[in-house]
Design a protein around this nucleic acid. Structure first.
Length: 260
DNA sequence: ATGACAGTTCGTAACTGA
């Protein structure tokens, strides 16, 4: 079972890239972020025709997340629990039915948090605290669980080509990194890093300054796996070539393969 | 160096993102 995450930076602008990649990669489940689309405008027909079921948390203009799945989606949660006043569309979760039971998947678009001296940074940290609290509840279910998405956190200096340039950025603040570690300490594994120990691997390259050509990237798209999911982990990958396509997203698809 | 991006919006400039 192949489960991928991809910040596509506009689902309507990227629909042809998305369809091409789905045909090539043939993932069973895809977590999308930054739809920049409300649900009514989401190009559902183009994906349902390819056999995908959808769970969408849309928002006009910004944010927006979705889960695509070849198998039925059940027990859908729209929005991250813990703050009724939070209207930003950054979280959708669902249980994917398989022949061997349920795999629970969440598509996460964690707040960017820049600039650090604005109210966006405390919003990011509070959102991470809510994610930690919710993850604790999900882990108590003792299911295969995959929390996938754009975390907007650079975990370690190894995860940036030029870590010193990110020292004042919300993505690399000690508070952001500490919360990511706290999340992992609950019993979640950063699956992609386990597949490339010690290697320079990135998932985002800025559109500006020739970042892609210089491989000036950062690793901020992650799949965190519960022990029950990690037990079944048989492969991981980063579909880097997608960044070189025409009209690319600034992020690329990242995936895990779980044994059936 | 008057710059170097991209998507979206009651738009043609302003915003958000990372």
């Amino acid at each position: 079972m192949k489960i991928a995450t991809w910040n596509i930076n506009g689902v309507r602008a990227r629909i042809e890239n998305l369809r091409t990649w789905l045909d090539q990669a043939s993932p069973d489940v895809v977590c999308l972020q930054e739809l920049k689309s409300e649900e009514a405008a989401f190009p559902a027909d183009a994906l349902e025709g390819s056999g995908y079921n959808l769970a969408i948390h849309g928002q006009k203009g910004f944010n927006g997340v979705a889960i695509l799945s070849k198998r039925p989606l059940e027990d859908v949660t729209v929005g991250l629990p813990g703050d009724k006043d939070d209207t930003q569309a950054r979280y959708v979760e669902a249980a994917v039915s398989t022949d061997t039971g349920v795999v629970r998947v969440a598509s996460i678009y964690l707040p960017n948090g820049n600039p650090v001296d604005s109210d966006k940074f405390p919003y990011k940290l509070a959102w991470m605290d809510r994610l930690i609290a919710h993850a604790r509840k999900l882990l108590a279910l003792e299911e295969p669980l995959v929390l996938a998405g754009d975390y907007n956190v650079i975990p370690t200096p190894m995860d940036a080509k030029h870590p010193e340039k990110w020292e004042n950025d919300a993505l690399f603040q000690p508070e952001s990194r500490a919360r990511l570690r706290e999340l992992e300490a609950l019993g979640l594994t950063d699956a992609v890093r386990t597949g490339y120990p010690g290697e320079d691997i990135y998932t985002f390259w800025d559109y500006q300054g020739g970042a892609w050509q210089k491989n000036n990237g950062i690793r901020i798209d992650h799949l965190l796996l519960s022990a029950q999911a990690t037990d079944r982990l048989v492969g991981v990958g980063i579909d880097k070539d997608v960044r070189a396509w025409e009209k690319p997203s600034d992020h690329v698809p990242v995936w895990v393969e779980l044994a059936d």
